[in-house]
Design a binder for these strands. Structure first.
Length: 476
RNA sequence: GGCCCCGUGGCAGAGUGGUUAUGCAGAGGACUGCAAAUCCUUGUACAUCGGUUCGAUUCCGGUCGGGGCCUCCA
Protein backbone atom coordinates (compact mmCIF):
# COMPACT_ATOMS: atom_id res chain seq x y z
CA UNK A 1 0.00 0.00 0.00
CA UNK A 2 1.18 3.50 -0.79
CA UNK A 3 2.18 5.83 1.99
CA UNK A 4 0.15 9.03 1.86
CA UNK A 5 1.28 12.20 3.55
CA UNK A 6 -0.47 15.52 4.01
CA UNK A 7 2.04 17.91 2.51
CA UNK A 8 2.02 21.38 4.01
CA UNK A 9 3.46 22.68 0.73
CA UNK A 10 0.25 21.80 -1.12
CA UNK A 11 -2.14 21.29 1.84
CA UNK A 12 -3.12 18.04 0.24
CA UNK A 13 -2.72 14.38 0.98
CA UNK A 14 -0.23 13.03 -1.52
CA UNK A 15 1.26 9.67 -2.33
CA UNK A 16 4.82 9.55 -1.05
CA UNK A 17 7.38 9.08 -3.80
CA UNK A 18 10.96 9.29 -2.58
CA UNK A 19 13.47 11.15 -4.73
CA UNK A 20 15.69 8.09 -4.52
CA UNK A 21 13.78 4.95 -3.47
CA UNK A 22 17.01 3.30 -2.45
CA UNK A 23 17.64 6.03 0.09
CA UNK A 24 14.76 7.74 1.88
CA UNK A 25 15.79 10.91 3.70
CA UNK A 26 13.98 12.53 6.62
CA UNK A 27 14.86 15.66 8.59
CA UNK A 28 13.07 16.80 11.73
CA UNK A 29 13.75 19.93 13.74
CA UNK A 30 15.03 18.90 17.14
CA UNK A 31 15.24 20.65 20.48
CA UNK A 32 16.99 23.78 21.57
CA UNK A 33 18.79 22.45 24.61
CA UNK A 34 18.34 24.86 27.50
CA UNK A 35 15.72 23.16 29.68
CA UNK A 36 13.88 19.90 30.26
CA UNK A 37 11.73 18.71 27.38
CA UNK A 38 8.03 19.29 27.92
CA UNK A 39 5.23 17.16 26.56
CA UNK A 40 4.86 19.54 23.64
CA UNK A 41 8.47 18.90 22.67
CA UNK A 42 7.83 15.19 22.96
CA UNK A 43 5.00 15.07 20.46
CA UNK A 44 7.04 15.60 17.28
CA UNK A 45 9.69 13.23 18.59
CA UNK A 46 7.15 10.46 19.08
CA UNK A 47 5.22 11.21 15.90
CA UNK A 48 8.26 11.25 13.67
CA UNK A 49 9.65 8.21 15.46
CA UNK A 50 6.57 6.37 14.21
CA UNK A 51 7.15 7.79 10.73
CA UNK A 52 10.77 6.61 10.76
CA UNK A 53 9.68 3.15 11.89
CA UNK A 54 7.08 3.04 9.14
CA UNK A 55 9.54 4.17 6.49
CA UNK A 56 11.95 1.45 7.58
CA UNK A 57 9.18 -1.10 7.25
CA UNK A 58 8.20 0.16 3.80
CA UNK A 59 11.77 0.64 2.58
CA UNK A 60 13.62 -2.26 4.19
CA UNK A 61 17.29 -3.04 4.05
CA UNK A 62 19.26 -4.21 2.25
CA UNK A 63 17.66 -2.87 -0.94
CA UNK A 64 16.72 0.38 0.74
CA UNK A 65 18.10 2.73 3.30
CA UNK A 66 16.34 5.29 5.49
CA UNK A 67 18.26 8.15 7.02
CA UNK A 68 16.55 10.03 9.81
CA UNK A 69 18.27 13.25 10.91
CA UNK A 70 17.15 15.21 13.94
CA UNK A 71 19.32 18.09 15.01
CA UNK A 72 20.21 19.56 18.35
CA UNK A 73 20.28 23.33 18.51
CA UNK A 74 23.06 24.23 20.89
CA UNK A 75 23.63 27.86 19.95
CA UNK A 76 20.79 30.19 20.74
CA UNK A 77 20.08 33.31 22.74
CA UNK A 78 17.83 31.41 25.13
CA UNK A 79 20.74 29.12 25.89
CA UNK A 80 23.01 32.08 26.51
CA UNK A 81 20.52 33.64 28.86
CA UNK A 82 19.85 30.45 30.77
CA UNK A 83 23.52 29.61 31.21
CA UNK A 84 24.13 33.05 32.62
CA UNK A 85 21.14 32.76 34.95
CA UNK A 86 22.30 29.34 36.14
CA UNK A 87 25.88 30.50 36.56
CA UNK A 88 27.19 27.70 34.40
CA UNK A 89 28.95 27.53 31.09
CA UNK A 90 27.04 27.14 27.87
CA UNK A 91 28.83 23.86 27.24
CA UNK A 92 27.73 22.52 30.60
CA UNK A 93 24.15 23.57 30.06
CA UNK A 94 23.81 22.17 26.56
CA UNK A 95 25.60 18.91 27.38
CA UNK A 96 23.44 18.28 30.42
CA UNK A 97 20.20 19.25 28.71
CA UNK A 98 20.94 17.15 25.65
CA UNK A 99 21.64 14.13 27.87
CA UNK A 100 18.37 14.69 29.73
CA UNK A 101 16.55 14.97 26.44
CA UNK A 102 17.98 11.63 25.33
CA UNK A 103 16.98 9.93 28.56
CA UNK A 104 13.45 11.30 28.39
CA UNK A 105 12.86 10.46 24.75
CA UNK A 106 14.15 6.93 25.23
CA UNK A 107 11.76 6.58 28.15
CA UNK A 108 9.03 7.39 25.66
CA UNK A 109 10.21 4.57 23.45
CA UNK A 110 11.63 6.83 20.76
CA UNK A 111 14.53 5.35 18.88
CA UNK A 112 17.56 7.53 18.31
CA UNK A 113 17.73 9.17 14.89
CA UNK A 114 20.44 7.93 12.57
CA UNK A 115 22.23 11.25 12.76
CA UNK A 116 21.89 13.85 15.47
CA UNK A 117 23.93 16.81 14.27
CA UNK A 118 24.69 19.76 16.49
CA UNK A 119 24.53 23.29 15.20
CA UNK A 120 27.90 24.22 16.69
CA UNK A 121 29.56 21.43 14.73
CA UNK A 122 28.31 22.86 11.45
CA UNK A 123 29.49 26.44 11.56
CA UNK A 124 31.72 25.88 8.52
CA UNK A 125 28.75 24.64 6.48
CA UNK A 126 26.69 27.61 7.58
CA UNK A 127 29.38 30.03 6.53
CA UNK A 128 29.72 28.24 3.20
CA UNK A 129 25.97 28.53 2.64
CA UNK A 130 25.95 32.19 3.53
CA UNK A 131 28.82 32.87 1.15
CA UNK A 132 26.91 31.18 -1.62
CA UNK A 133 23.84 33.24 -0.88
CA UNK A 134 25.86 36.46 -0.97
CA UNK A 135 27.54 35.42 -4.22
CA UNK A 136 24.17 34.76 -5.82
CA UNK A 137 22.72 38.06 -4.67
CA UNK A 138 20.34 36.55 -2.13
CA UNK A 139 22.10 37.94 0.91
CA UNK A 140 24.07 40.97 1.92
CA UNK A 141 26.35 42.03 4.77
CA UNK A 142 25.39 45.13 6.70
CA UNK A 143 26.62 46.51 9.99
CA UNK A 144 28.28 43.25 11.05
CA UNK A 145 25.19 41.26 10.15
CA UNK A 146 24.44 39.17 7.12
CA UNK A 147 20.82 39.24 6.04
CA UNK A 148 18.81 37.19 3.63
CA UNK A 149 17.21 39.37 1.01
CA UNK A 150 13.60 38.29 0.88
CA UNK A 151 12.78 40.38 -2.24
CA UNK A 152 15.46 38.39 -4.09
CA UNK A 153 13.22 35.34 -3.97
CA UNK A 154 9.89 35.89 -5.71
CA UNK A 155 8.43 32.59 -4.43
CA UNK A 156 9.16 33.45 -0.81
CA UNK A 157 6.17 32.69 1.44
CA UNK A 158 4.93 29.66 -0.47
CA UNK A 159 4.92 27.28 2.46
CA UNK A 160 3.05 29.54 4.86
CA UNK A 161 1.00 31.10 2.06
CA UNK A 162 1.47 34.65 3.01
CA UNK A 163 2.64 37.53 0.95
CA UNK A 164 5.18 40.14 1.87
CA UNK A 165 2.75 42.93 2.59
CA UNK A 166 0.92 40.83 5.13
CA UNK A 167 4.13 39.88 6.83
CA UNK A 168 5.25 43.43 7.13
CA UNK A 169 1.85 44.61 8.29
CA UNK A 170 1.78 41.91 10.94
CA UNK A 171 5.34 42.25 12.12
CA UNK A 172 5.48 42.68 15.86
CA UNK A 173 9.10 43.64 16.04
CA UNK A 174 10.62 46.90 15.06
CA UNK A 175 12.58 46.77 11.87
CA UNK A 176 16.31 46.94 12.44
CA UNK A 177 17.93 49.86 10.63
CA UNK A 178 20.45 47.70 8.78
CA UNK A 179 17.71 45.78 6.95
CA UNK A 180 17.20 46.75 3.34
CA UNK A 181 13.73 45.28 3.45
CA UNK A 182 11.60 44.81 6.55
CA UNK A 183 11.08 41.14 5.74
CA UNK A 184 14.80 40.34 5.53
CA UNK A 185 16.04 37.99 8.20
CA UNK A 186 19.37 37.38 9.89
CA UNK A 187 21.78 34.73 8.66
CA UNK A 188 24.73 35.82 10.78
CA UNK A 189 25.08 38.32 13.56
CA UNK A 190 27.96 39.75 15.56
CA UNK A 191 28.77 38.35 18.98
CA UNK A 192 29.94 40.09 22.11
CA UNK A 193 33.20 38.82 23.56
CA UNK A 194 31.35 36.98 26.35
CA UNK A 195 28.96 35.27 23.96
CA UNK A 196 29.70 32.29 21.75
CA UNK A 197 31.22 33.33 18.46
CA UNK A 198 33.14 32.04 15.50
CA UNK A 199 35.44 33.78 13.08
CA UNK A 200 33.83 34.47 9.75
CA UNK A 201 34.35 36.64 6.69
CA UNK A 202 32.05 39.15 8.43
CA UNK A 203 33.91 39.15 11.71
CA UNK A 204 33.42 37.19 14.89
CA UNK A 205 29.79 36.24 15.16
CA UNK A 206 27.15 33.58 15.52
CA UNK A 207 24.49 32.18 13.26
CA UNK A 208 20.89 33.25 12.95
CA UNK A 209 18.24 30.74 13.86
CA UNK A 210 17.31 29.31 10.50
CA UNK A 211 20.63 28.76 8.79
CA UNK A 212 21.61 25.80 10.95
CA UNK A 213 18.88 23.54 9.59
CA UNK A 214 19.75 24.41 6.01
CA UNK A 215 23.38 23.60 6.77
CA UNK A 216 22.78 20.36 8.65
CA UNK A 217 20.21 18.93 6.26
CA UNK A 218 22.56 19.77 3.38
CA UNK A 219 25.52 18.09 5.04
CA UNK A 220 23.68 14.92 6.05
CA UNK A 221 20.92 14.55 3.47
CA UNK A 222 21.95 16.60 0.47
CA UNK A 223 20.68 19.68 -1.32
CA UNK A 224 17.18 18.23 -1.59
CA UNK A 225 15.60 15.43 0.39
CA UNK A 226 12.26 13.76 0.94
CA UNK A 227 10.54 14.79 4.16
CA UNK A 228 11.02 17.69 6.52
CA UNK A 229 9.04 17.65 9.75
CA UNK A 230 8.42 19.74 12.82
CA UNK A 231 5.81 21.53 14.87
CA UNK A 232 3.07 23.59 13.31
CA UNK A 233 4.53 26.77 14.75
CA UNK A 234 7.70 26.30 12.76
CA UNK A 235 5.98 26.78 9.41
CA UNK A 236 6.58 30.48 9.71
CA UNK A 237 9.13 31.81 9.91
CA UNK A 238 11.53 28.95 10.52
CA UNK A 239 10.70 26.58 7.72
CA UNK A 240 9.82 29.33 5.30
CA UNK A 241 13.28 30.75 5.84
CA UNK A 242 15.00 27.39 5.63
CA UNK A 243 13.39 26.90 2.27
CA UNK A 244 14.50 30.33 1.13
CA UNK A 245 18.09 29.70 2.22
CA UNK A 246 18.44 26.23 0.79
CA UNK A 247 16.64 26.80 -2.47
CA UNK A 248 18.44 30.02 -3.22
CA UNK A 249 21.82 28.61 -2.23
CA UNK A 250 21.43 25.53 -4.42
CA UNK A 251 19.19 26.91 -7.11
CA UNK A 252 16.81 24.03 -6.45
CA UNK A 253 13.10 23.83 -7.01
CA UNK A 254 12.37 22.41 -3.58
CA UNK A 255 14.26 21.93 -0.34
CA UNK A 256 12.23 18.92 0.75
CA UNK A 257 9.50 17.33 -1.31
CA UNK A 258 7.12 16.80 1.60
CA UNK A 259 6.63 18.96 4.67
CA UNK A 260 4.85 17.56 7.69
CA UNK A 261 3.75 19.52 10.73
CA UNK A 262 2.36 18.23 13.99
CA UNK A 263 -0.31 20.06 15.97
CA UNK A 264 0.07 21.58 19.39
CA UNK A 265 -0.36 20.02 22.78
CA UNK A 266 -2.71 21.58 25.30
CA UNK A 267 -2.72 20.69 28.98
CA UNK A 268 -6.07 20.02 30.64
CA UNK A 269 -7.70 21.93 27.81
CA UNK A 270 -5.53 25.00 28.08
CA UNK A 271 -2.58 26.17 26.08
CA UNK A 272 0.57 25.10 27.82
CA UNK A 273 2.55 28.08 28.98
CA UNK A 274 4.81 29.03 31.78
CA UNK A 275 2.60 31.91 32.84
CA UNK A 276 -0.35 29.56 33.35
CA UNK A 277 1.84 27.27 35.41
CA UNK A 278 0.72 24.23 33.46
CA UNK A 279 4.05 23.34 31.98
CA UNK A 280 4.43 19.55 32.05
CA UNK A 281 7.95 18.34 31.59
CA UNK A 282 8.36 14.81 30.36
CA UNK A 283 10.54 14.12 33.34
CA UNK A 284 7.85 15.13 35.83
CA UNK A 285 5.17 13.08 34.14
CA UNK A 286 7.51 10.08 34.07
CA UNK A 287 7.62 10.19 37.86
CA UNK A 288 4.01 9.09 37.97
CA UNK A 289 3.28 7.39 34.69
CA UNK A 290 4.96 4.81 32.48
CA UNK A 291 6.68 6.30 29.45
CA UNK A 292 4.65 3.98 27.30
CA UNK A 293 1.39 5.48 28.57
CA UNK A 294 2.69 8.95 27.71
CA UNK A 295 3.63 7.69 24.28
CA UNK A 296 0.22 6.15 23.70
CA UNK A 297 -1.49 9.34 24.76
CA UNK A 298 0.66 11.36 22.36
CA UNK A 299 -0.33 9.01 19.55
CA UNK A 300 -4.01 8.86 20.45
CA UNK A 301 -4.92 11.85 18.30
CA UNK A 302 -3.97 12.35 14.69
CA UNK A 303 -0.61 14.13 14.51
CA UNK A 304 -1.99 17.24 12.82
CA UNK A 305 -4.85 17.65 15.27
CA UNK A 306 -4.46 19.38 18.61
CA UNK A 307 -3.82 16.99 21.46
CA UNK A 308 -5.02 17.54 25.00
CA UNK A 309 -2.59 16.15 27.53
CA UNK A 310 -4.54 15.42 30.70
CA UNK A 311 -4.50 13.20 33.76
CA UNK A 312 -7.68 11.58 32.48
CA UNK A 313 -5.94 10.92 29.18
CA UNK A 314 -2.99 9.35 30.95
CA UNK A 315 -5.31 7.16 32.98
CA UNK A 316 -7.05 6.00 29.86
CA UNK A 317 -3.77 5.36 28.06
CA UNK A 318 -2.61 3.29 31.00
CA UNK A 319 -5.89 1.36 31.02
CA UNK A 320 -5.58 0.67 27.31
CA UNK A 321 -2.07 -0.66 27.74
CA UNK A 322 -3.23 -2.85 30.62
CA UNK A 323 -5.78 -4.35 28.28
CA UNK A 324 -3.29 -4.95 25.48
CA UNK A 325 -0.67 -6.42 27.79
CA UNK A 326 -3.35 -8.56 29.40
CA UNK A 327 -4.11 -10.07 26.03
CA UNK A 328 -0.42 -10.76 25.49
CA UNK A 329 -0.07 -12.26 28.94
CA UNK A 330 -2.95 -14.60 28.32
CA UNK A 331 -1.05 -15.75 25.23
CA UNK A 332 2.37 -15.76 26.82
CA UNK A 333 3.00 -19.38 25.99
CA UNK A 334 2.01 -18.92 22.37
CA UNK A 335 4.87 -18.82 19.90
CA UNK A 336 4.82 -16.13 17.27
CA UNK A 337 6.43 -18.49 14.79
CA UNK A 338 4.24 -20.83 12.82
CA UNK A 339 4.54 -24.19 14.55
CA UNK A 340 4.89 -26.20 11.35
CA UNK A 341 7.64 -23.96 10.00
CA UNK A 342 9.38 -23.90 13.33
CA UNK A 343 9.57 -27.66 13.15
CA UNK A 344 10.68 -27.87 9.55
CA UNK A 345 13.25 -25.13 9.46
CA UNK A 346 16.29 -24.25 11.43
CA UNK A 347 18.23 -21.05 11.97
CA UNK A 348 18.20 -18.31 9.39
CA UNK A 349 16.19 -20.28 6.86
CA UNK A 350 13.24 -20.28 9.19
CA UNK A 351 13.33 -16.53 9.57
CA UNK A 352 13.34 -16.02 5.83
CA UNK A 353 10.52 -18.40 5.07
CA UNK A 354 8.40 -17.23 7.94
CA UNK A 355 8.78 -13.52 7.32
CA UNK A 356 5.69 -11.94 8.81
CA UNK A 357 3.45 -9.91 6.58
CA UNK A 358 1.56 -7.73 8.99
CA UNK A 359 -0.42 -5.13 7.07
CA UNK A 360 -3.35 -4.29 9.31
CA UNK A 361 -1.51 -1.66 11.32
CA UNK A 362 0.80 -0.67 8.49
CA UNK A 363 -2.14 0.19 6.27
CA UNK A 364 -3.60 2.46 8.93
CA UNK A 365 -0.31 4.29 9.31
CA UNK A 366 0.14 4.57 5.56
CA UNK A 367 -2.93 6.80 5.55
CA UNK A 368 -1.12 9.92 6.66
CA UNK A 369 0.08 8.32 9.88
CA UNK A 370 -3.38 7.54 11.24
CA UNK A 371 -2.19 6.47 14.67
CA UNK A 372 -5.63 6.55 16.34
CA UNK A 373 -6.94 4.11 13.76
CA UNK A 374 -3.82 1.97 14.19
CA UNK A 375 -4.35 1.91 17.96
CA UNK A 376 -7.98 0.90 17.51
CA UNK A 377 -6.75 -1.97 15.36
CA UNK A 378 -4.38 -3.00 18.11
CA UNK A 379 -7.45 -3.36 20.28
CA UNK A 380 -9.28 -5.34 17.66
CA UNK A 381 -6.33 -7.68 17.40
CA UNK A 382 -6.23 -8.01 21.18
CA UNK A 383 -9.91 -8.95 21.22
CA UNK A 384 -9.37 -11.52 18.51
CA UNK A 385 -6.36 -12.87 20.35
CA UNK A 386 -8.40 -13.21 23.54
CA UNK A 387 -11.12 -15.11 21.74
CA UNK A 388 -9.02 -17.31 19.52
CA UNK A 389 -8.54 -20.98 20.27
CA UNK A 390 -5.00 -21.76 21.34
CA UNK A 391 -3.94 -23.25 18.04
CA UNK A 392 -4.87 -20.06 16.21
CA UNK A 393 -3.39 -17.56 18.58
CA UNK A 394 0.08 -17.50 17.10
CA UNK A 395 -0.78 -15.48 14.03
CA UNK A 396 -2.77 -12.91 15.92
CA UNK A 397 -0.17 -12.50 18.59
CA UNK A 398 2.45 -12.00 15.94
CA UNK A 399 0.35 -9.48 14.04
CA UNK A 400 -0.34 -7.61 17.25
CA UNK A 401 3.32 -7.48 18.25
CA UNK A 402 4.51 -6.53 14.79
CA UNK A 403 1.94 -3.81 14.47
CA UNK A 404 2.65 -2.51 17.93
CA UNK A 405 6.35 -2.39 17.16
CA UNK A 406 5.59 0.03 14.37
CA UNK A 407 3.96 2.28 16.92
CA UNK A 408 6.75 1.68 19.41
CA UNK A 409 4.24 0.10 21.79
CA UNK A 410 4.09 -3.23 23.65
CA UNK A 411 7.86 -3.45 23.62
CA UNK A 412 7.95 -4.73 27.21
CA UNK A 413 6.97 -8.18 28.30
CA UNK A 414 3.65 -8.44 30.13
CA UNK A 415 5.67 -9.56 33.13
CA UNK A 416 7.64 -6.31 33.13
CA UNK A 417 4.54 -4.26 32.52
CA UNK A 418 2.47 -5.79 35.30
CA UNK A 419 5.11 -6.81 37.79
CA UNK A 420 8.22 -4.79 36.99
CA UNK A 421 9.63 -2.53 39.65
CA UNK A 422 8.59 -4.79 42.53
CA UNK A 423 11.63 -5.94 44.45
CA UNK A 424 12.61 -9.60 44.55
CA UNK A 425 12.08 -9.63 48.30
CA UNK A 426 8.53 -8.39 47.85
CA UNK A 427 7.90 -10.92 45.13
CA UNK A 428 8.91 -13.74 47.43
CA UNK A 429 6.63 -12.37 50.11
CA UNK A 430 3.78 -12.02 47.62
CA UNK A 431 4.22 -15.60 46.48
CA UNK A 432 4.23 -16.74 50.12
CA UNK A 433 0.94 -14.96 50.77
CA UNK A 434 -0.58 -16.35 47.61
CA UNK A 435 0.34 -19.84 48.77
CA UNK A 436 -1.14 -19.15 52.20
CA UNK A 437 -4.29 -17.89 50.55
CA UNK A 438 -4.48 -20.97 48.35
CA UNK A 439 -4.41 -23.11 51.47
CA UNK A 440 -7.15 -21.04 53.03
CA UNK A 441 -9.26 -21.34 49.91
CA UNK A 442 -8.73 -25.05 49.80
CA UNK A 443 -9.96 -25.19 53.37
CA UNK A 444 -12.87 -22.99 52.26
CA UNK A 445 -11.77 -20.36 54.74
CA UNK A 446 -12.81 -17.52 52.43
CA UNK A 447 -12.66 -14.92 55.16
CA UNK A 448 -8.94 -15.57 55.56
CA UNK A 449 -8.46 -15.75 51.79
CA UNK A 450 -10.14 -12.38 51.32
CA UNK A 451 -8.17 -10.91 54.21
CA UNK A 452 -4.91 -11.84 52.49
CA UNK A 453 -6.16 -10.44 49.20
CA UNK A 454 -7.19 -7.19 50.87
CA UNK A 455 -3.86 -6.93 52.65
CA UNK A 456 -1.99 -7.19 49.38
CA UNK A 457 -4.36 -4.80 47.68
CA UNK A 458 -3.63 -2.23 50.36
CA UNK A 459 0.02 -2.60 49.39
CA UNK A 460 -0.75 -2.04 45.73
CA UNK A 461 -0.80 -5.67 44.67
CA UNK A 462 -3.84 -7.13 42.97
CA UNK A 463 -4.56 -10.84 42.75
CA UNK A 464 -6.35 -12.64 39.96
CA UNK A 465 -7.54 -16.21 40.29
CA UNK A 466 -7.42 -18.07 37.01
CA UNK A 467 -7.67 -21.65 35.85
CA UNK A 468 -3.89 -21.95 36.08
CA UNK A 469 -3.80 -20.60 39.60
CA UNK A 470 -3.44 -17.15 41.08
CA UNK A 471 -1.39 -14.40 39.46
CA UNK A 472 -0.59 -10.93 40.74
CA UNK A 473 0.17 -7.52 39.33
CA UNK A 474 0.87 -4.03 40.50
CA UNK A 475 -2.34 -2.07 40.99
CA UNK A 476 -3.24 0.98 38.94
C1' G B 1 -6.80 42.72 9.70
C1' G B 2 -4.27 38.31 6.91
C1' C B 3 -3.38 32.93 6.67
C1' C B 4 -4.85 28.12 8.57
C1' C B 5 -7.41 24.36 11.47
C1' C B 6 -11.48 22.35 14.16
C1' G B 7 -16.81 21.47 16.07
C1' U B 8 -18.86 13.26 16.17
C1' G B 9 -22.54 9.38 21.41
C1' G B 10 -20.99 10.55 29.19
C1' C B 11 -15.40 11.09 27.89
C1' A B 12 -11.29 10.32 24.35
C1' G B 13 -11.18 9.74 19.19
C1' A B 14 -11.29 7.48 13.79
C1' G B 15 -14.12 7.30 9.49
C1' U B 16 -17.72 7.34 5.55
C1' G B 17 -22.43 9.98 0.20
C1' G B 18 -26.77 4.96 1.79
C1' U B 19 -24.01 -0.78 5.86
C1' U B 20 -20.64 -2.06 13.69
C1' A B 21 -15.21 2.43 14.31
C1' U B 22 -12.20 1.53 18.54
C1' G B 23 -11.10 2.37 23.73
C1' C B 24 -12.59 4.21 28.61
C1' A B 25 -16.81 4.91 31.67
C1' G B 26 -22.16 2.89 32.36
C1' A B 27 -26.05 -1.24 32.21
C1' G B 28 -27.36 -6.59 31.85
C1' G B 29 -25.49 -11.65 31.40
C1' A B 30 -21.70 -15.91 31.45
C1' C B 31 -17.56 -17.50 34.38
C1' U B 32 -15.89 -17.09 39.82
C1' G B 33 -16.64 -19.08 46.87
C1' C B 34 -16.57 -13.60 46.15
C1' A B 35 -13.67 -10.68 43.12
C1' A B 36 -10.37 -9.61 39.06
C1' A B 37 -9.38 -10.70 34.09
C1' U B 38 -11.96 -12.53 29.83
C1' C B 39 -16.24 -13.37 26.76
C1' C B 40 -21.50 -12.14 25.20
C1' U B 41 -25.35 -8.32 24.95
C1' U B 42 -26.38 -3.09 25.31
C1' G B 43 -26.13 2.71 24.13
C1' U B 44 -28.32 4.31 17.65
C1' A B 45 -23.65 10.36 17.92
C1' C B 46 -22.00 13.46 14.02
C1' A B 47 -22.79 22.46 16.17
C1' U B 48 -26.63 25.22 13.35
C1' C B 49 -29.26 26.98 8.87
C1' G B 50 -29.78 26.47 3.76
C1' G B 51 -28.22 24.05 -1.02
C1' U B 52 -26.76 19.77 -4.30
C1' U B 53 -28.58 14.57 -4.29
C1' C B 54 -33.08 9.22 -4.77
C1' G B 55 -30.31 9.77 -0.12
C1' A B 56 -25.49 13.84 3.72
C1' U B 57 -22.65 13.29 9.71
C1' U B 58 -19.78 12.76 5.06
C1' C B 59 -19.98 17.57 -0.84
C1' C B 60 -21.07 23.23 -1.34
C1' G B 61 -22.45 27.99 0.98
C1' G B 62 -23.96 31.02 5.23
C1' U B 63 -24.26 31.37 10.68
C1' C B 64 -22.62 30.36 15.58
C1' G B 65 -18.67 28.47 18.62
C1' G B 66 -13.47 27.04 19.65
C1' G B 67 -8.23 27.06 18.46
C1' G B 68 -3.39 28.15 16.10
C1' C B 69 0.21 31.22 13.38
C1' C B 70 1.51 36.29 11.65
C1' U B 71 10.22 37.18 13.00
C1' C B 72 13.50 33.11 16.97
C1' C B 73 7.50 29.04 21.02
C1' A B 74 7.43 21.76 19.26
Amino acid sequence: MDLKITNTLTREKEVFRPIDPSHVRLYVCGPTVYDFAHVGNARPVVVFDVLARLLRRLYPAPEHRVTYVRNITDVDDKINARARANGETIAELTARTAAQFHEDMRALGAEDPDVEPRATHHIAEMIALIERLIAKGHAYAADGHVLFSVPSMPEYGGLSRRDRDEMIAGARVEVAPYKKDPADFVLWKPSDPELPGWDSPWGRGRPGWHIECSAMSWKHLGETFDIHGGGLDLIFPHHENEIAQSRCAFGSHVMATYWMHNGFVTVEGEKMSKSLGNFYTVRDVLQEWPGEAIRLLLLSAHYRAPLDFSKAGLREAKAQLDRLYQALESAQNVSTVRPDLALKNQGDAMVNIDRPQETYITDALCDDLNTPLAISRLHELATRLNKAPDDQKFGMKRTLLQGAELLGLLQNTPDEWFRGGVSDISQIEIERLIAARADARKARDFAEADRIRDTLKAQGIELEDGPQGTTWKRAG
